[in-house]
């Protein structure tokens, strides 16, 4: 608990650069490993709190956590160092991927390959949604809200602000109602 170590500015940048570079298929697991286990900047509990707050705010939660952790140790400079560390590696690789796409993205030999990856990536996203739903096991009325949001976005192609405006109050109300009932049943 007490054996956490405050990072120096270069260490903050380098630690986040490592997280960004190794974060193939998502940075969340690597961020926890580097920050909590390897470098001991934060305790498990502190990190979970920062990440939880990062999740409530818009934007990638690991990115938000980088800003908050950087600020905690070194103010504005820390926030900038952690954030730029997180993105420097991925951006460099992204430039290479963009050049690759421009050169080969639609050439006859490579297009089917890319299309196969695209089809698999689509399944990856759907599988993730199913997995999240399975882990969460929402009550039936909230499953219905989720399915309606899916239909509104994928079939009706409604704009996101409209979807949020309609379904967020509905979801929150249903969730509140369930909490009240659980309270009343006690």
């Amino acid at each position: 608990m007490s054996d956490t170590v405050a990072p120096t500015k270069p260490a903050l940048f380098l630690g986040y650069a490592k997280i960004g570079l190794l974060g193939f298929g998502g940075v969340a697991a690597w961020a926890r490993r580097v920050i909590v286990e390897e470098r001991r900047w934060l305790s498990e509990r502190d990190y979970a709190e920062v990440l939880g707050l990062g999740q409530i705010l818009p934007g990638p939660n690991v990115g938000n956590a980088a800003v908050m952790i950087g600020r905690r140790f070194h103010g504005l400079a820390g926030a900038l160092l952690a954030t730029s560390g997180l993105y420097v590696g991925p951006l460099a690789i992204l430039v290479a991927l963009a050049v690759f796409y421009d050169l080969y993205g639609t050439t006859p030999g490579v297009a089917p390959f890319m299309q196969g990856v695209a089809a698999a990536a689509a399944g990856m996203v759907m599988g993730t949604a199913l997995k999240m739903a399975g882990n969460l096991k929402p009550p039936i009325e909230l499953v219905a809200v989720g399915v309606l949001a899916l239909a509104a976005a994928a079939v009706l192609r409604l704009p996101l602000p409209l979807i949020v405006l309609v379904f967020a109050p509905l979801g929150v109300w249903l969730s509140l109602r369930r909490a009240w009932r659980a309270e009343a049943a006690k």
Binding site: Q115, A121, G127, T128, A154, F167, G171, V172
Partner: peptide
């Protein structure tokens, strides 16, 4: 409690992303 009401919407939107990507990937065939 609020989060519990919102997360299903987020999951629905992620599923919608999957559907759109799948349609796009199949459309070019």
């Amino acid at each position: 409690v609020i989060e519990r009401g919102m997360v299903p919407i987020a999951i629905g939107l992620i599923a919608a992303s999957g559907v759109l990507l799948a349609t796009g990937a199949a459309a070019g065939a």
